[in-house]
Simulated scan of single mutants.
Amino acid sequence: MTNVKYKRIVLKLSGEALAGEKGFGINPPVIKVIAKQIKDVHDLGVQIGIVVGGGNIWRGETGAEMGMDRAQADSMGMLATVMNGLALQDGLESLGVEVRVQTAIEMRQVAEPYIRRRAIRNLEKNRVVIFAGGTGNPYFSTDSAAALRAAEIDADVILMAKNNVDGVYSADPKLDPEAVKFEQLTQLDIINKGLNVMDSTASSLSMDNDIPVVVFNMNEPGNIKRVVEGENIGTTIEGGK
């Protein structure tokens, strides 16, 4: 392995990232670009787990706001993440990267069930593991799934890849010209300041298990690799209290 800062990572991708400028659905050319960036990191010898959202297809919260039962709406959202995971798997495999998709909801015809020890073994064999289906439970976001899987596989860091957002700010920089970008924070800062980075469950999980989070702009080519190699971009959120 080359000289990298993080040897085992969980990369959190939003569902919207797979839609590109269309904003909805799965955009194969965009997936190819993302897959190439992931392959560049994989070529360094880094062990990669990926959690992908489903907001480009369905959001459970949106369904609940429309009058659907929240648990039912969230189940639909978890299935959306499986679709995204399979699309990303195809993009990576087209580049020669060996990939396993593991789902929190069993669907053996299309993916492996999530089994912690099997996931770790796949990582040790230099396979990218895509964790789909969220946590398998309603009311939990894919941010929480990323924090949970990172703790379970003993990841060194969670890489929170954002669309055209280069870190954590004191306010929305598009609305407030005086918004200040933070380079370093703690999870306690995120919770106390009410910063919109990840939900409070994910923040608490990361804090309790001392897992750092790096928030960065994934739309800048090569940024995933730069973070893994230790370049100071985005905002680093320390996991400890």
Rank of each mutant, 00 (worst) to 15 (best):
T2Y: 11
K5V: 08
K7N: 15
I9L: 08
S14E: 04
E16D: 13
A17D: 01
A17E: 08
A19D: 00
G25C: 06
N27M: 06
N27E: 12
P28A: 06
P28T: 05
K32S: 12
I34H: 00
K36R: 14
I38L: 01
D43N: 15
L44M: 11
L44I: 01
V46A: 08
I48L: 10
V52R: 08
V52I: 15
G53I: 07
G54Y: 12
W58Q: 06
W58H: 08
R59G: 11
G60W: 05
M66H: 11
Q72V: 15
M78L: 15
L88K: 04
Q89I: 02
L92V: 13
E93K: 14
G96H: 05
G96V: 03
G96K: 05
E98H: 12
A104G: 14
I105E: 04
E106H: 09
R108V: 15
I120V: 15
E124D: 14
E124K: 14
V129H: 07
V129A: 06
I130W: 07
N137A: 11
S141I: 12
S144P: 02
A146V: 07
L148T: 07
R149Q: 05
A150S: 09
A151W: 07
I153C: 11
L159R: 00
M160V: 02
M160E: 03
V165A: 01
V168Y: 00
A179S: 14
K181D: 06
E183W: 07
E183Y: 12
Q184G: 02
L185V: 09
K193P: 04
G194V: 09
V197P: 07
M198S: 09
D199S: 06
S200I: 10
S200P: 01
T201I: 13
S203R: 01
N219M: 13
R226V: 05
V228Y: 08
E229Y: 06
G230C: 03
G230Q: 04
I233F: 00
G234W: 07
